[in-house]
């Protein structure tokens, strides 16, 4: 294992981290929006979101990646020239993870006692204030454990970006392993993933501890 191999892996890791960060950045708010529409009184919107969530959770992310990337070409004959694979990865990951997050949010929101809404209403809080000041902070505390699971899965899922030839860490590790006829690059990549997840788990645990000031 040479230094240059490690540097190549590190550059792949950077791409993996971009995918990870961008996915979370967009999927957290989008998931909340989906959850709220999924719980809305409008039956049409509600069922549309139910269908979206069930499709996203019921089909492989790998397939979703392929459809998001090649779909515009095969379905509408659009050129892929100005359509970077990286963008397709972000879109597919955000759509997929937003669906999972939405279900987690929904469970969290449903678990907040009705009395919290009533107390806020009587005190004159608007609907928006009630949700963002009173309900959402409690929801976040409750959903952290399942969110941590998803976030850890996301670290490993970034390796799926290889199916549309995005040079994230796993793609690169495989290439080098082939060139050098050695398993070491793959093992090194495994260590990188492990450390990545270790940091993620550690961070999530810290956040959970921070929110432990109340019950």
């Amino acid at each position: 294992m040479t230094f240059s191999t490690l540097m190549q892996l590190a550059s792949g890791l950077r791409t993996s981290i971009y995918i990870f960060v961008l996915t979370l950045l967009f999927a957290f708010p989008l998931g909340l929006l989906v959850a709220l529409i999924r719980m809305s009184r409008n039956c049409l919107l509600r069922n549309a979101m139910r269908l979206y969530i069930s499709v996203m959770r019921g089909t492989p992310l790998m397939l979703q990646l392929l459809i998001v990337y090649f779909g515009p070409y095969y379905l509408f004959g659009l050129s892929l020239k100005n359509y970077p694979a990286f963008l397709a990865v972000i879109i597919a990951f955000v759509l997929n993870y937003a669906a999972y997050f939405a279900e987690i949010y929904r469970g969290g929101i449903a678990s907040i006692p009705i009395g919290q809404y009533e107390a806020a209403t009587v005190l004159g809080y608007t609907k928006g204030q009630t949700f963002f000041k009173i309900i959402l902070p409690q929801v976040i505390k409750r959903i952290l454990p399942p969110i941590t699971n998803e976030v850890i899965t996301l670290v490993k899922d970034t390796s799926l970006a290889q199916v549309i030839a995005v040079l994230e860490m796993f793609t690169i590790a495989k290439q080098i392993a082939n060139q050098q006829a050695s398993m070491m690059p793959l093992i090194a990549a495994g260590v990188f993933y492990y450390v990545f997840n270790f940091v993620v788990a550690f961070t999530m645990e810290r956040i959970e501890q921070k929110l432990n000031y109340y019950q």
């Binding site: 009533e118 009173i134 902070p137 505390k141 109340y214």
Partner: peptide, 10 residues
């Protein structure tokens, strides 16, 4: 004033 207080726990 509610039966279950309904204070905001956070």
């Amino acid at each position: 004033v509610f039966q279950n207080f309904n204070l905001f726990p956070h």
